[in-house]
Amino acid sequence: MKAVILAGGLGTRIAEESDTKPKPMVEIGGRPLLWHIMKTYASHGIKDFVICLGYKGYVIKEFFINYYNHMSDMIVDLGVGEHKIVNTQSEDWKIALVDTGAETLTGGRLKRIASYIGDETFCLTYGDGLSDIDITAEIEFHKSHKRLATVAAVQPPGRFGVLNLDASRIVTSFEEKPSDEMGWINGGFFVLEPGVLDYIENDSISWEREPLSRLAKDGQLCAFPHTGFWRPCDTLRDKRELEALWAEGKADWRVW
């Protein structure tokens, strides 16, 4: 099974980082977000990836082209201009790096890599969200309901305390950052059938709008509830919080 990762957006909300690289290349613990996500999939046996490139896609290409050497020990003989790999910690991944356009929206990017998917069930996620989601269980759930699409449903951590008031405006209770403040939302981490591509018309289609709405209307979209760790990296604040979790050994998304 393949995992498709959307990695072509501008990442304007974290411009401090994305001015020089795509958001999926923002580092947590010295490794890009993209690498963390791929490690999650690999831990469930999915090691065949299709990366949808766009903004500064060459940065991602260069990372993986040089990955083997960067992750290996080597002996360099400057006198003769030769080097030899003596130990490697590289991954056994197969990666298709596909330029899907600088301005293409998420649905259009997915449509553009149709030839890489073929007729098989595949996974899809965004290049900026970390989670300890059980991918294997989600795939099994998807196969059991026999519909075109499954989406991981998550309850994001609240950013603000919630005041509950009575008719006299007296505070009856206070909840500090409740996890269900927004209810269930799209957490990414989809399992899809190739038939979902028929719901995408062109590059200007956002996957999160017309296609998902039409799939839901047609009864072809099921939710896989995930109550464990889930966190996007949308802002510099998010990055710092994820870095702190990694440094403190509390990176719950590290399932490998």
Rank of each mutant, 00 (worst) to 15 (best):
G8N: 01
L33D: 02
L245C: 04
R109G: 13
D132W: 06
I185F: 08
A251C: 05
V191W: 02
P24T: 01
I117M: 13
Y58T: 14
S173R: 15
V162S: 10
L10G: 09
I95V: 13
N202R: 14
R31T: 00
G30Q: 10
M71I: 11
G11A: 02
D128G: 12
H142N: 04
G161C: 08
T104I: 06
I200G: 08
S144I: 08
V162A: 14
E82F: 02
V162M: 09
N69C: 07
A102D: 15
L33S: 01
N202W: 08
T100R: 13
K217F: 01
N164T: 15
L53M: 04
W35R: 08
L148W: 00
K239H: 05
L245V: 09
S18Q: 08
W93K: 04
M71F: 10
P157M: 12
M74A: 15
E193H: 13
I28P: 06
V162G: 04
R159E: 14
H142K: 05
E175M: 09
P211L: 11
I75C: 15
S213F: 13
E62W: 02
S204F: 02
H142W: 04
D132H: 06
L148E: 04
C123A: 12
Q155N: 10
K2F: 04
F174A: 08
C233Y: 08
S131F: 02
A149V: 06
L105Q: 07
W246M: 10
T172N: 13
P24G: 08
D77P: 07
C233A: 14
W184K: 11
G30E: 05
T235I: 10
I75D: 14
E140S: 13
W35C: 05
S115R: 11
D48A: 07
D128S: 12
W93A: 02
V98L: 01
L6C: 13
D19Y: 06
G29C: 13
I170N: 15
L165N: 08
I65D: 12
E82P: 00
A223E: 12
L34V: 10
W184R: 11
L197I: 06
S168I: 04
F122L: 05
F122E: 03
H226R: 08
R169G: 08
V191S: 04
L245F: 07
G108D: 01
L97Y: 06
P157L: 11
R237C: 12
D73E: 03
P22Q: 02
L242V: 04
G9H: 05
S168V: 10
P157N: 15
A96N: 15
I60N: 03
L78C: 14
G81I: 02
I85L: 13
N164V: 12
S18D: 14
G249F: 01
C233H: 12
F64V: 09
E120F: 01
G219D: 05
G129N: 10
T40E: 04
C222K: 14
D166W: 00
T12P: 00
W253Q: 06
L192P: 03
V154L: 09
K23H: 09
P194L: 13
T125L: 09
M1S: 14
